[in-house]
Amino acid sequence: MNLQSILLLAIVAIVFLFVGYRYVKRQRNNPGCGNCNCDCSCSSTCHNCPGC
């Protein structure tokens, strides 16, 4: 595997881990739809969450 392939794979892996971490964290904080980007721990779904 050449350098540019390793770099690209590393980028995908980092993005995957970052998005995955945020997704799991949000699901834990907010049991609603879990799609929004907010990290608040309010009980609203993302449609009503003030942080979204």
Partner: peptide, 20 residues
């Protein structure tokens, strides 16, 4: 905009993760 953003966020989070 809210609905489009919801959908795009879904596409780039859960669907992105699931695809990989």
């Amino acid at each position: 905009w809210d609905k489009a953003r919801d959908f795009l966020q879904r596409a780039f989070t859960v669907i992105f993760l699931a695809s990989i």
